[in-house]
Deep mutational scan, measured.
Amino acid sequence: DDLEQFAKQFKQRRIKLGFTQADVGLALGTLYGNVFSQTTICRFEALQLSFKNMCKLKPLLNKWLEEAD
């Protein structure tokens, strides 16, 4: 599944880049005006958010990865 794959890759890249889940949540706030909690990022990576929320977060996290690289 696409979302599952993305969540896995996101977590690996985030760790490799040296960011915590909280860092990502704050960075999203800075970039897009939407601060996300560490818990939200954690749940995303664990696929524990609703499908709708996963779909909403994915493009933001994808963009963040591009910026962070």
Score class of each variant (00 low, 15 high):
Lys11Gln: 12
Leu61Ala: 02
Asn34Arg: 13
Ala27Gly: 09
Gln21Ala: 09
Ala22Asn: 02
Phe10Asp: 00
Gln9Ser: 12
Ile15Met: 07
Leu31Gln: 11
Thr40Met: 10
Ala27Tyr: 06
Asn34Val: 10
Lys16Tyr: 12
Val35Ile: 05
Leu47Ala: 08
Leu17Asp: 04
Leu57Thr: 04
Cys55Arg: 15
Ala7Ser: 15
Thr40Pro: 03
Ala7Ile: 13
Phe10Gln: 04
Leu31His: 10
Leu28Asn: 03
Asn62Ser: 14
Thr20Gly: 05
Phe44Cys: 11
Gly33Leu: 01
Asn34Ser: 15
Leu26Val: 11
Glu66Pro: 06
Phe44Tyr: 00
Tyr32Arg: 07
Phe10Val: 01
Arg13Glu: 09
Ala27Asn: 01
Val24Leu: 04
Phe36Tyr: 13
Glu66Val: 10
Ala27Leu: 07
Trp64Met: 02
Lys8Ala: 13
Gln21Ile: 15
Asn34Trp: 02
Thr40Tyr: 05
Leu60Val: 09
Glu45Trp: 02
Leu65Ile: 06
Leu49Lys: 06
Asp23Leu: 03
Gly33Met: 02
Lys8Val: 07
Gln48Trp: 07
Ser37Gln: 08
Phe44Trp: 05
Ser37Cys: 04
Lys16Phe: 05
Phe19Lys: 07
Ala46Ile: 03
Lys63Val: 03
Trp64Arg: 05
Gly29Pro: 04
Thr20Gln: 01
Leu57Pro: 14
Leu65Phe: 04
Gln21Val: 13
Trp64Glu: 02
Glu45Leu: 04
Leu61Phe: 01
Gly33Tyr: 06
Phe19Trp: 07
Asn53Tyr: 08
Gln12Leu: 10
Trp64Asn: 00
Phe51Arg: 14
Ala7Asp: 04
Ala22Trp: 02
Lys11Trp: 03
Lys63Glu: 06
Leu49Ser: 04
Gln48Leu: 08
Glu67Lys: 13
Thr40Ile: 06
Met54Arg: 01
Ala22Lys: 15
Ala46Trp: 05
Phe10Ile: 01
Lys16Cys: 06
Ser50Ala: 03
Cys42Met: 09
Gln48His: 05
Leu61Tyr: 01
Asn53Ala: 13
Asp69Thr: 08
Lys16Ala: 13
Phe44Lys: 04
Leu47Gln: 06
Leu26Phe: 15
Phe10Tyr: 04
Gln21Lys: 09
Lys16Asp: 12
Met54Cys: 04
Arg14Leu: 02
Thr30Leu: 08
Leu28Gln: 03
Arg14Gln: 01
Cys55Pro: 01
Trp64Ser: 03
Gly25Tyr: 02
Gly29Lys: 13
Asp23Val: 00
Gln38Trp: 07
Asp2Asn: 15
Leu57Gly: 02
Asp23Lys: 03
Lys16Arg: 12
Leu28Gly: 00
Thr30Ile: 07
Leu31Asp: 13
Gln9Leu: 10
Lys56His: 05
Thr30Pro: 11
Ala46Thr: 11
Leu65Ala: 07
Phe19Val: 10
Ser37Pro: 12
Asp2Trp: 11
Leu49Trp: 13
Asp2Ile: 09
Ala7Thr: 12
Leu57Val: 06
Asn62Phe: 05
Glu45Lys: 04
Ala27Thr: 07
Asp2Thr: 14
Ala7Gln: 03
Leu28Ser: 00
Arg43Leu: 01
Gly33Ser: 01
Ala7Gly: 07
Ile15Gln: 13
Cys42Asp: 14
Gln12Ile: 05
Val35Ala: 06
Leu26Lys: 12
Ala27Met: 07
Gln48Arg: 07
Tyr32Trp: 09
Gly18Ala: 06
Phe36Met: 14
Phe10Met: 04
Gln48Asp: 04
Leu26Glu: 15
Asp2Arg: 11
Trp64Gln: 02
Val24Ile: 02
Cys55Gly: 08
Glu66Ile: 14
Ala46Gly: 13
Lys11Leu: 00
Lys11Gly: 00
Ala68Asn: 11
Lys16Trp: 04
Glu66Met: 13
Phe19Gly: 00
Gln38Val: 07
Ala22Ser: 09
Lys8Phe: 07
Leu61Thr: 06
Leu65Arg: 04
Phe44His: 00
Lys58Glu: 00
Phe51Val: 14
Thr30Lys: 15
Tyr32Phe: 13
Arg43His: 05
Ala46Lys: 15
Thr39Gly: 10
Asn34Tyr: 09
Cys42Val: 08
Ala22Gly: 09
Asn53Ser: 09
Asn62Lys: 11
Asn62Ala: 13
Thr40Lys: 10
Ile15Leu: 09
Leu49Ile: 00
Cys42Gln: 14
Arg13Asn: 04
Glu66Cys: 13
Ser50Lys: 09
Gly33Ile: 04
Asp2Lys: 14
Asn53Arg: 13
Gln38Asn: 07
Ala46Ser: 12
Lys58Gly: 01
Phe44Val: 04
Ala46Val: 04
Pro59Thr: 07
Asp1Asn: 15
Ser50Val: 00
Met54Ile: 01
Phe36Arg: 15
Leu26Met: 14
Asp23Gln: 14
Glu66Ala: 05
Asn34Thr: 12
Gly18Val: 01
Lys56Gln: 06
Gln21Arg: 10
Ala46Pro: 01
Met54Tyr: 06
Arg14Phe: 02
Asn62Glu: 15
Arg43Met: 05
Thr30Gly: 13
Phe19Met: 13
Asn53Asp: 14
Lys63Asp: 08
Leu31Ser: 11
Gln12Phe: 04
Pro59Ser: 07
Thr20Lys: 03
Gln38Ile: 06
Lys58Pro: 02
Glu66Thr: 11
Ala46Gln: 09
Ser50Pro: 14
Arg14Lys: 00
Lys52Asn: 12
Arg13Leu: 02
Lys58Met: 05
Thr30Asn: 08
Ala46Leu: 06
Cys42Ser: 11
Val35Thr: 15
Glu67Ser: 15
Lys58Ser: 02
Ile15Lys: 08
Thr20Val: 00
Asp2Gly: 10
Phe36Pro: 13
Ala27Trp: 12
Leu28Trp: 00
Asn53Leu: 11
Lys63Ala: 11
Glu66His: 14
Gln9Cys: 07
Gln48Lys: 10
Glu67Gly: 12
Leu61Arg: 00
Met54Gly: 02
Leu49His: 04
Trp64Thr: 00
Cys42Gly: 13
Ser50Gly: 05
Asn34Ile: 10
Gly25Cys: 15
Gly29Leu: 00
Leu31Lys: 11
Leu26Arg: 15
Leu57Ser: 05
Leu3Phe: 07
Asp2Pro: 08
Lys63Met: 07
Met54Pro: 00
Gln38Asp: 12
Leu49Cys: 01
Ala68His: 08
Asn62Gln: 13
Leu3Glu: 07
Gln12Gly: 04
Gln48Glu: 12
Arg13Asp: 03
Ala22Val: 06
Leu65Val: 09
Asn53Phe: 06
Phe51Cys: 07
Leu57Tyr: 02
Ala7Leu: 01
Gln21Met: 06
Leu26Asp: 13
Arg43Lys: 13
Arg14Trp: 00
Lys16Leu: 12
Lys11Asn: 00
Gln12Asp: 10
Ala22Thr: 11
Gly33Arg: 08
Lys58Ile: 07
Ile15Phe: 09
Val35Tyr: 12
Asn34Cys: 15
Arg14Tyr: 02
Lys8Glu: 13
Glu66Phe: 11
Gln9Ile: 07
Phe44Glu: 00
Gly25Ile: 01
Leu26His: 15
Thr20Arg: 01
Ala68Trp: 04
Asn53Val: 09
Lys63Asn: 09
Leu49Tyr: 05
Gln9Met: 15
Gln9Lys: 13
Phe19Arg: 07
Thr40Trp: 07
Gln21Gly: 04
Met54Gln: 04
Lys56Asp: 11
Gly25His: 03
Cys55Lys: 13
Trp64Cys: 03
Phe10His: 02
Tyr32Ala: 07
Phe51Pro: 14
Asp23Asn: 04
Glu67Gln: 10
Gln12Cys: 07
Phe36Gly: 05
Pro59Val: 08
Ala46Cys: 09
Ala68Tyr: 11
Gln48Cys: 03
Ala22Arg: 11
Cys55Glu: 09
Tyr32Gly: 10
Asp2Ser: 11
Phe51Ala: 12
Ser37Asp: 11
Lys63Gln: 12
Gln38Tyr: 10
Asp2Tyr: 07
Gln9Thr: 14
Thr40Val: 11
Gly18Ser: 01
Leu3Thr: 00
Glu67Arg: 13
Gly29Glu: 13
